[in-house]
């Protein structure tokens, strides 16, 4: 399961660019700071590799493996 804390995001876009399955996409909603956080569009295709979790500089994404 992908958990995204939208208020921590600074919209750098690293997670959306480097996801190997392109699960994440920039959403069209803005957060309190004025950035566009990512949203999971193809959550069922997520491999659970945790690359986004480790690459995120803001601790905004967590992958919970079931």
């Amino acid at each position: 399961m992908i958990e995204i804390d939208e208020e921590l995001c600074k919209g750098c876009g690293i997670c959306t660019d480097f996801c190997p399955m392109k699960v994440l996409e920039t959403s069209d909603k803005i957060n309190k700071k004025g950035y566009y956080p990512p949203k999971a569009v193809k959550e069922d295709e997520c491999l659970g590799c945790r690359l986004c979790e480790l690459l995120c500089p803001e601790f905004a994404i967590f992958i919970i493996n079931e």
Partner: peptide
Amino acid sequence: SGCGCGTVLNC
């Protein structure tokens, strides 16, 4: 935004 320091902290 985009700084690598956060990634290092994460690791």
